[in-house]
Amino acid sequence: MSKDLSIKVRVKLVEKDLTMTQLAKELGMSAAYLSDIINGKKDGPKAQEHIKRIKKILSI
Rank of each mutant, 00 (worst) to 15 (best):
P45V: 05
Y33V: 14
M20Y: 14
A32E: 14
S30T: 15
K52G: 02
S2K: 09
K42D: 04
Q22I: 13
V14Y: 13
V9N: 01
I51E: 04
K8R: 10
Y33D: 01
K8D: 03
K25M: 06
S35T: 14
S30N: 11
D4G: 05
I37C: 05
K12S: 13
L27V: 07
H50T: 15
I38L: 00
K25W: 08
R53F: 07
A31L: 02
D4C: 05
I60T: 03
K46E: 12
K16F: 13
K52V: 11
Q48K: 14
I54M: 04
A31F: 08
L58S: 03
M20E: 15
L13I: 13
Y33S: 08
K12C: 09
D36W: 11
L58T: 02
M20V: 08
I38W: 06
D4A: 09
G28Y: 06
V14D: 13
I38A: 07
T21R: 14
D43S: 14
D17P: 00
T21D: 07
L34D: 12
E49F: 11
K25F: 11
K42Y: 08
M20A: 10
L5Y: 08
L23H: 04
I37W: 01
S6H: 11
L13Y: 09
G28I: 06
I51D: 02
A47W: 01
S35M: 04
D43V: 07
I57F: 00
I57W: 00
A32Y: 14
L13A: 10
